[in-house]
């Protein structure tokens, strides 16, 4: 590969990668009813419209609620399971590990379908809680794997020292193990929040009236191309990029 070919390929690849998101953000400032050329603007009118839409803001709130709640549960369960498997000799531990990781290998559609069948058979109503249950199922394996991987033997001495000094098991976990693993716990939590906040198919199948943001966007899509969809998409993009920058500047910078 010659040098100029390399740069050309890189430029075309980045053009391809940025083409849709560029169109999305540009036409969110469109002054008119359709997000297609020619571009008139810029105008902030669609942002105003979207942010004052009660359906959108309540869906945004629901998404955050489900994301934070389900991630907290997933990380807690994952942390305990990782601690139990890393520090105790358990019969069948290889099998337990495989079982905890298993949901990663099944597509979200099938996880949602299985839960939907059981819930409707049992006559249970669908709500944000059932969405949260589904999101814990998909995030628990990741949280467990991330925390388990960083639970090295080097932490054991500190735990043993604490026990020798009279700490009970609960205090060891709370005051010694958890703080030592806080980078892994934070990483697992943020990854879970990102995945849950943006998850569509499980949220679509397992809720009826209280819908989350991706499902709200989905229902808006039915009326075709609209600058308000561009505005929501760009807004979500802006929040994610800001969160990413914040994480990069605080958590990741400190590690170096």
């Amino acid at each position: 590969m010659t040098r100029s070919f390399s740069w050309l390929y890189l430029a075309i690849a980045f053009g391809f990668i940025y083409l849709p998101v560029g169109a999305l953000v540009l036409f969110s400032f469109q002054d008119g009813g359709l997000p297609v050329p020619p571009f008139n603007g810029p105008s902030l009118r669609w942002y105003g419209e979207v942010l004052s839409d009660r359906n959108v803001t309540s869906a945004l709130f629901h998404s955050l609620l489900v994301a934070v709640g389900s991630s907290a549960i997933a990380v807690m369960l994952g942390f305990f399971a990782a601690y139990g498997l890393a520090r105790y000799v358990l019969p069948g531990s290889v099998f337990i590990r495989a079982l905890l990781i298993a949901p990663l290998t099944v597509s979200y559609l099938i996880v949602g379908l299985g839960l939907l069948i059981v819930l409707t058979r049992m006559g249970l109503g669908l709500s944000l809680i059932t969405v949260g249950i589904g999101h814990v199922v998909i995030n628990l394996p990741l949280a467990f794997a991330i925390i388990y991987a960083s639970m090295g033997a080097q932490h054991e001495n500190a735990e043993r020292a604490a026990r020798d000094l009279g700490a009970t098991e609960a205090w060891v976990l709370l005051l010694v193990t958890a703080p030592m693993l806080s980078p892994a716990i934070a990483a697992a939590f943020f990854l879970s929040v990102t995945l849950s906040w943006d998850e569509f198919i499980i949220a679509f199948l397992l809720t009826r009236f209280d819908i989350t943001l991706p499902v709200e966007i989905w229902s808006m899509l039915r009326s075709g191309l609209s600058p308000s969809l561009n505005a929501i998409g760009s807004f979500v993009f802006l929040i994610s990029v800001a969160a990413l920058l914040l994480l990069e500047l605080t958590v990741l910078r400190r590690r170096k």
Binding site: L85, L99, L115, V118, F144
Partner: peptide, 23 residues
């Protein structure tokens, strides 16, 4: 040990293994 592992195991079995078996 089982005390720590059981909650995660319960969740995975109740909301993943059982639904797949029912499916």
């Amino acid at each position: 040990g089982w005390g720590f592992v059981t909650p995660a195991l319960f969740w995975t079995i109740a909301f993943f293994v059982v639904p797949l078996a029912v499916m």
